[in-house]
Amino acid sequence: MSTITTKDGVEIFYKDWGPRDGQPLVFHHGWPLSADDWDAQLLYFLGKGYRVVAHDRRGHGRSAQVSDGHDMDHYAADIASVVEHLDLRNAVHIGHSTGGGEVTRYVARHGQPSGRVAKAVLIGAVPPIMLKTAANPDGTPIEVFDGFRQQLAANRAGFYLDIASGPFYGFNRPGAHVSQAVAQNWWRQGMMGGAKAHYDGIKAFSETDFTQDLKAIEVPTLVMHGDDDQIVPIADSALLSVKLLKKGTLKVYEKLPHGMCTTHADIVNPDLLAFIKA
């Protein structure tokens, strides 16, 4: 199993597939999942000749279930360690949901100073900030995230099954094509990780303010979002983020859900390829 150990002693699992001389595409997964959530993208881009890399965030998947460091600064530093270990250059960093926040902080704080990043992609991503605050009055109230924490602590397995079977993939919408296999795979990935990491991760994805990170990003950045995203509402995320990016491009997907990379990979993947090749 491929792992690296970070400076603070955390073992991080990663996948590294494809030709060593291919352009690297680095995929950052959402909460509370793992690198496996990118299967539909990893195989697609592997077939196009790219080098594809995806890691399990600390406390998630096959990475160490440590007690501490479940915040965006550590998440970004961890992927920086993976990138340095593999010596990835001219890479495109692609993040979904919480992973989009991770990409934003990584590129702003670690990727650009080292010159390792060519482009970035934010898909259904949490920036600029999800939480309702005085500066972000249209955000989601803290009570919603407190509810997430309560449900996780009370019955994590049931909570995860409800998310996967309902709003994450839009399976709760009238006429939706429901895939129990997709929902069960989401549940499997979630239950592989540690409850402590997932509990702390709710604060990380909901309360982190990425405004200054977005403003600092110099590389071309594609912002992709479904307008029926029930997990990260588009009005509070993508529509705001693209205004803060220097070289941002927004692509909105009508009626697509938060988990569109899985349910609509046939639409998402070609658009990603076009942006990477542009």
Rank of each mutant, 00 (worst) to 15 (best):
G101H: 02
A176V: 13
A164L: 03
A153P: 08
D68F: 13
D138M: 10
P113E: 11
V107L: 02
R116K: 14
G61D: 05
A91P: 05
A120C: 14
F159I: 05
Y50A: 05
S81T: 15
V117A: 07
L43W: 11
L86G: 05
F148G: 06
R149A: 12
R109L: 12
N172R: 09
G170P: 09
A91M: 15
I163P: 00
D56W: 06
Y50S: 01
S81Y: 12
R156V: 07
A64C: 04
Y106G: 04
A77F: 08
H96S: 11
S179P: 12
F168C: 02
V52R: 01
A54K: 01
D71T: 05
V121T: 09
L88I: 09
Y44L: 03
H177W: 04
F171P: 00
A125K: 04
A118G: 02
A91V: 01
D146F: 12
Q151W: 11
E143D: 13
K48I: 02
D138K: 13
P167E: 10
S67A: 15
L86P: 01
N172T: 11
V121Q: 05
Q65S: 10
A176G: 05
V92E: 01
A154W: 08
A135C: 08
G95V: 08
A153Q: 14
S67M: 12
G47F: 12
V82F: 03
P128R: 02
Q150P: 00
V92K: 00
T104W: 02
A118D: 10
A77S: 14
H96E: 12
M72F: 15
S165K: 13
F148R: 07
L161G: 12
R149H: 11
T104D: 03
Q151R: 15
A54I: 02
R109I: 09
A135V: 13
G124M: 07
I79E: 05
V121R: 03
G69N: 08
V117C: 12
D146H: 15
A154G: 07
S81M: 10
G139P: 02
Q180A: 15
H74K: 14
M130S: 11
